Simulated assay, not measured.
Amino acid sequence: MDQTEKLLMGIENILSVASDLVQEVDRLKRVEEECQMLKEKLFLKQLTTSEQDVFALTLDGHSITEMQNILFREESTIKN
C-alpha cells in the first residue's frame, strides 16, 4: 500500500468520524430541547390554573388592563 492509498484511507476515516460527530451533536441538541421543555412544564405545574392563565397572557404581551378584560379579574388579583 503506497502513501496515497494510506492518505485516502485516513481521509475516509476522518470523514466517517466527522459524520458520527455531526449526528451526535444533533442528538444532543434534541435532548437539550427536550430537557428545556420538561423544565418549563415542571415550572408551569407549580402554578395554579389562574397563574398559568396570567403567565400565558403576559408572554403574549398583554397589559394588566387587557388581562382584566380577558380574565374578568381585578388588577390586584392579576398582580398577585
Rank of each mutant, 00 (worst) to 15 (best):
V17F: 01
A18M: 09
A18I: 03
A18K: 11
S19E: 13
D20E: 13
L21Q: 13
L21W: 02
L21P: 00
V22G: 05
V22R: 13
V22L: 14
Q23K: 14
E24I: 05
V25C: 06
V25T: 10
R27C: 08
R27L: 10
K29I: 14
K29F: 05
E32L: 12
E32Q: 13
E34S: 15
C35F: 00
Q36R: 12
Q36G: 05
Q36T: 09
M37W: 06
E40H: 10
E40R: 11
E40Y: 04
F43I: 13
K45L: 12
K45T: 10
K45E: 12
T49Y: 02
T49A: 14
D53G: 07
V54L: 03
V54K: 02
F55C: 08
L57P: 01
L57W: 01
L57G: 02
T58C: 07
T58D: 08
T58P: 01
T58A: 13
T58Y: 00
L59T: 01
D60A: 14
S63E: 05
S63T: 15
I64F: 07
T65F: 06
M67S: 02
Q68D: 05
Q68W: 01
N69L: 07
I70M: 07
F72W: 08
E74M: 07
E74S: 15
E75H: 12
E75F: 11
